[in-house]
Design a protein around this nucleic acid. Sequence first.
DNA 1: AACCCATGTCAATGCACGTTGACTTATGCC
DNA 2: GGCATAAGTCAACGTGCATTGACATGGGTT
Lengths: 194, 194
Amino acid sequence: MAEIRALRRDPRRRDAVATRAAILAAARDQFGRLGYDCTALRDIAAAAGADVALIKRYFGGKEALFTEALKAAFRSDFLAAWDPWSFPRDFATAMAGGPNEDEARTQSFQFLLRAATSPSTAPLLNAAIQERFLEPIRQWLGEADAPGRARALAAAVIGLLVERLIRGEALQGGEREAFIARVTAMLERIVTAA
Amino acid sequence: MAEIRALRRDPRRRDAVATRAAILAAARDQFGRLGYDCTALRDIAAAAGADVALIKRYFGGKEALFTEALKAAFRSDFLAAWDPWSFPRDFATAMAGGPNEDEARTQSFQFLLRAATSPSTAPLLNAAIQERFLEPIRQWLGEADAPGRARALAAAVIGLLVERLIRGEALQGGEREAFIARVTAMLERIVTAA
DNA sequence: AACCCATGTCAATGCACGTTGACTTATGCC
DNA sequence: GGCATAAGTCAACGTGCATTGACATGGGTT
């Protein structure tokens, strides 16, 4: 919230590009957390410290803002934030936490998940998501059998995100340990080349 | 549509239980296809050949109707249809196919997916998941560390079903082979007790 | 046949939202 | 300093929705 609003260097200053960027960042955040349908433009504007009418001026409408945010989510390549070597354990640990704990690194994943599963956006965007979601994974894996492994990894990531989303809270104690251990092993079976 | 409405033996006859059943069936269908937020009670009532006010009378409101439909959708759990020993390879093979090939066993999952990705229903879903999804998996796994493993398996299963749903078609050739191999190995890491 | 309650119908209310146009104010240029 | 234009504000409109209570009607009971 505060950091999104801080994109505008001074609240009283008039800066179109900063305002636009703040709106876009807030849109990415809210669309990613709530999905297309449950996100209100008024809330996005409020989070960005802007007015609803500016969304119309700068983006045209809700759908246009969503597609713009989608592009932005793709642009910052989500996988680059993860080290392939430690990815299985790191991701498993992140997924053992609550859905709001590792937002910075998982925001892009969340956004793609929402875009893929929202009835309003899925028909138009599923194909594009497939191309732009799977292709980076393939290059990230960068070995033979990459297509099949990319699909498997995509499935695992999606499932873990959904499960964490449903769970709503962090795992505790032995359940957390067992979960991390199993998920780590599971992801290693896909990420490792052999 | 027609078959849902046909639950009422005669449209002109007054039959509370038939009307209730028709509404519930229509709710399952629409919630499953559109998700909670995009489903209008008016449409459910129309599909059931009933009036909106009857939904209030018989169920109380939208949320109550949803939870009722959720219970009904979970009544047939598809895990019971699988043999634990050959589950990893069998399920991996099934997931390599198209989404319409195994519809009977995965129908209730569509409902779960839509419910999971809607913020309004995620809290409601958690309890149902615990009771009707994780608990059977635990008993199915039947070993120590079952809670953590059950969550991991649930995540994997959900992700695979979603990926297949998004993919829309069966995998072919080498991609299919690699996918099955990886997913089998992945599931074995969770299903096997050690 | 008359009555009564369950069943079904209808219209109104209030709310949340996206959209829109008119209005106000700051900023940079002449 | 004054002006033109960009930047930001505000209130209103229309729409779709869940909810609600009042009203109508069928069908079983006496």
